[in-house]
Design a protein around this nucleic acid. Structure first.
Lengths: 189, 189
DNA sequence: CTTTTAATTGACCAGTGGTTAATAATTCAG
DNA sequence: CTGAATTATTAACCACTGGTCAATTAAAAG
């Protein structure tokens, strides 16, 4: 009946992002469907494809904010007024907390390999890791090898990868997380 | 035309498992479709559902073998004729090698949470972990806490979780794997 | 006022896992 | 040996998925 809406009802990128983000907070990348986003926005799913190339494109746009969020988190941890050892511990725990409190996003950021937008996503992930690595280097008392930093990152990643799914929020895994981090910190003191 | 095949052409559980396994070696759980399995078997996909409750059921049947394989791997490592420290290192590397050489299977074993058959799969995973933990306990020179064993498992899991997707075979990540394991072993000597 | 451009729809494609009535081959019982 | 019960299979169907595209209409430009 109306292959174009009135100006007041027109769709914007922001509206789509907002709705997608809303659902993305409670559902996996795979469980959020373009069709359902469209339905909640009161438009056809085809309309979304006018604003975004594809699903990966839309969700990568969302994910970018979370990369920034993570980067900011790393920066903040370094600037804390505490001793380096404490800060290092906080950095590790903060990463885990981020991963477990943004599980759907973390999955897309560090677990899924998206054929399409992968290049961009990969770059952002590398960038975040670089920040992480610099922070560790800076906070570790003795000189640490890049290998050890990478190993500790993978270990944290392992924790998040495992507890996502068996836990809804970081708090539920807090105790175990601390033990995990203590294990890792033995190598940085 | 023929709602039942001649006895000689009848479908068996084994035939289905074989074909599914074949595809599962090269494709994800998600990328192997019941319909394609059926096509390659020359039957309709509905027929498979006569033999297996659903996709998860079929694939869990396959996965069971891989849990056994992993368990055997752990046992074999302990029985090696080497010093404990070497065996511990080999155990860690063997786990990584298993994960990276059976990526699709590893995903289903330790990464995906299957609503349906999850109880069984989870149990098998716990069982394998128990074996792993016992082996570590036995091989570690000093007494180690269960927390440390769990932490090291998660760290190995993190390595596999990361390198799956960026690597096709363990060999491609061998060097990095060794560094990762050395990092972990510092806590067990 | 007309033309151009931008945004939207809805039908469509090819694919997914899963269900089920109908049916034919096989097995079982008398 | 025959007829009934059982078993295995098919094909049509359901409700989804991501994605494309011609047609259409609102708005903007000339």
């Amino acid at each position: 009946m109306s292959p174009r809406k009135r100006a007041s009802e027109e769709l914007t990128k922001d509206m789509i992002i907002q709705e997608a983000q809303l659902q993305f907070e409670k559902k996996n990348f795979r469980d959020v469907s373009m069709r359902n986003i469209a339905k909640n926005l009161g438009c056809s799913h085809g309309a979304i494809y006018y604003h975004f190339k594809n699903k990966a494109d839309l969700f990568f746009t969302i994910i970018e904010q979370y990369f920034s969020k993570l980067n900011k988190l790393i920066d903040e941890t370094i600037q804390d007024k505490e001793d380096d050892q404490t800060k290092l511990k906080k950095l590790f725990l903060a990463f885990i907390a981020f991963g477990l409190n943004h599980q759907s996003q973390y999955e897309l950021m560090f677990m899924l390999r998206n054929e399409e937008v992968d290049a961009l996503s990969q770059q952002a992930a590398n960038n975040s890791y670089r920040k992480f690595a610099e922070a560790v280097q800076h906070l570790a008392s003795h000189t640490v090898t890049v290998a050890d930093i990478w190993a500790s990152f993978l270990a944290l990643h392992g924790f998040v990868s495992y507890y996502r799914g068996s836990v809804k929020k970081y708090e539920e895994a807090e105790v175990t997380a601390e033990m995990h981090v203590n294990f890792l910190l033995k190598n940085f003191s």
